[in-house]
């Protein structure tokens, strides 16, 4: 059963990959990569069950975390071209 789930997740990952390659805007690519990341989380979880090593679920949590922070970082970079930007520049004065 988990083999079928793995195949299903992999198939939808490859579909998401086509959108990442097609674009056309950078936001489409970020969206596709974000969805790809969510599916990777599920793939890790399913593989954990398939190989009967539930410790994999910890890796899935870590991956979900990095996926979220990575998406926010990429979006902030494309919006402001600066990762440390804030609305209140006086806070930057050291």
């Amino acid at each position: 059963m988990f083999v079928a789930a793995t195949v299903g997740v992999l198939a939808s990952m490859s579909l998401a990959m086509t959108r990442a390659l097609m674009g056309p805007t950078v936001y489409d690519r970020v969206l596709a990569v974000n969805t790809f990341g969510t599916k990777t989380v599920l793939l890790i979880a399913v593989l954990g069950f398939l190989t009967e090593r539930p410790e994999f679920l910890d890796l899935a949590i870590v991956y979900a975390l990095i996926n979220f922070i990575g998406t926010i970082a990429v979006l902030k970079f494309f919006e402001y071209r600066d990762l440390g930007w804030t609305r209140h520049p006086e806070a930057d004065a050291e």
Partner: peptide, 30 residues
């Protein structure tokens, strides 16, 4: 007991601060 250890933990701990910096800006995290 499971996958993990100092290296991964260090990266995740830093990721928490990176998220804070992304939302609140470099001045606040400093």
């Amino acid at each position: 007991y499971g996958p993990g250890g100092g290296f991964q933990a260090g990266v995740i701990f830093a990721a928490g601060f990176v998220l804070y910096a992304l939302i609140y800006g470099l001045g606040n995290v400093k």
